[in-house]
Simulated scan of single mutants.
Amino acid sequence: MALTVLSVVLAVVLYGSLLWTGRQGLRDPSDRMLRAVFLCLLCAGLSFPFGVPAGARLMDGLAGDGAAKLAQNLCLLGTVHFLGCFFIHAASNPATATARVRRQTVPLVATAAVITLAMALTPEVERSHTYATADMREPGVAVFYLMAGAYLTYALTIALVWTVRYARLAGRPLVAGLRMLTAALAGMVLASVVREAATLVRLLGGEVPHPVIVGAKLALDLAIPLFVTGVVWPGLVTRWASIRVWWHHGRVYRELAPLWTELHAAFPEDALERTRSDRWWDGLTPRSVHRRYYRRVIECRDGLVRISPHLALMADTKVPLEPEVAAIHLRTALRAYAAGEEAPSQAVPVALPDGDGGLEDDVRQLTRMSEALAASRA
């Protein structure tokens, strides 16, 4: 049950990250590192269904026994290949990176061709096996596992070396993802070496203790989710930070409603131009929420500047008005403005930021005033 839940969570994270990197890649097709990450996740995403019993049965039913196993291994080869491509592009200039990627493609294509041929030459009765039950004395089976394992060990070792080097230079949140990748790749390399040695022993007619095979499989089962998490971690952290900003802007937008409503009723001409959309979900998109947030902050500040001379008269002061003091006199000042009463033409500071915090500090003062205004109405 726990494994099933983990598989579902892993699938959600994997395919969600795949959609996100695909969208980012469409925005910037020239970003080779992003393209490598997308292809790495794509291969991992394609391999996932073939490792699920229902998906494997469906694939084998359509293309014959062993098709799911072959497809899964081909996708895994692509996954580690494109992970290596990411680090090559990250650490090399474009011309050098392109040449290195081409050289790394040769063993990938050769391995894919050999294991495909090995599976085709394997008798059908021997294709529907697991690693633990496979007859390694069958030439096609032995070649399949030896070649796939050799390439995985080679590619994973290269990726591990690059990951360790890159992790020393990376900053947060990338370094956390690279550390996860380092641990996952180390586990995968260890499991691959053990499985290669076990394959050779079984090919030569020897017996491999069952705990060794189980241990290698367990290492892979633990490393794969950690690997996917490490690949998508920087994107997840970035998305989480964006969601927090989106939520904060939406909350502040609502908190400023009492102040904005009073000022907008008095100065409707100060409203910034807005483009309405017929699609209801556009109002929930991050860009729309951020736009409405900034527009409301600006309109509130503009309205306070215009009403500040009347506020100064109502409060009988020439010093900057605190948000709570300004809130007490705002409605009276607005009525005086609407009635055309005279007031000094010079603006008076109202709800000014306390420190040097920039826009956020200004927004806090406006929010204080809006809350005080809502409390006075209640």
Rank of each mutant, 00 (worst) to 15 (best):
S7H: 09
Y15T: 06
R23V: 11
D28C: 11
S30T: 15
R35D: 03
L41Q: 09
C43S: 14
L46C: 14
L46K: 05
A56G: 15
K69H: 14
L70V: 10
A71W: 10
C75M: 13
L76H: 05
F82T: 00
F82C: 03
H89Y: 15
S92W: 08
N93P: 03
P107M: 09
P107F: 05
A112F: 03
A112P: 02
I115E: 09
M119H: 03
L121A: 12
P123Q: 08
E124F: 10
E124T: 14
R127M: 02
S128L: 07
T130L: 10
D135Y: 08
M136G: 01
M147E: 13
I158C: 12
A159C: 12
V164T: 10
Y166V: 02
Y166C: 04
L169C: 09
G171I: 11
L174N: 06
T182W: 12
G187L: 13
M188H: 00
A198I: 03
V201K: 05
V214W: 11
L220H: 11
D221R: 09
D221L: 09
A223D: 01
I224G: 00
P225V: 07
G235P: 09
R244W: 01
W247A: 08
W247H: 06
L263Q: 03
H264R: 14
H264T: 12
H264Q: 14
T275H: 13
G283S: 06
V289R: 02
L304V: 03
R306H: 03
E342L: 15
P344F: 04
S345R: 15
P349R: 01
A351C: 04
R364F: 04
A374W: 11
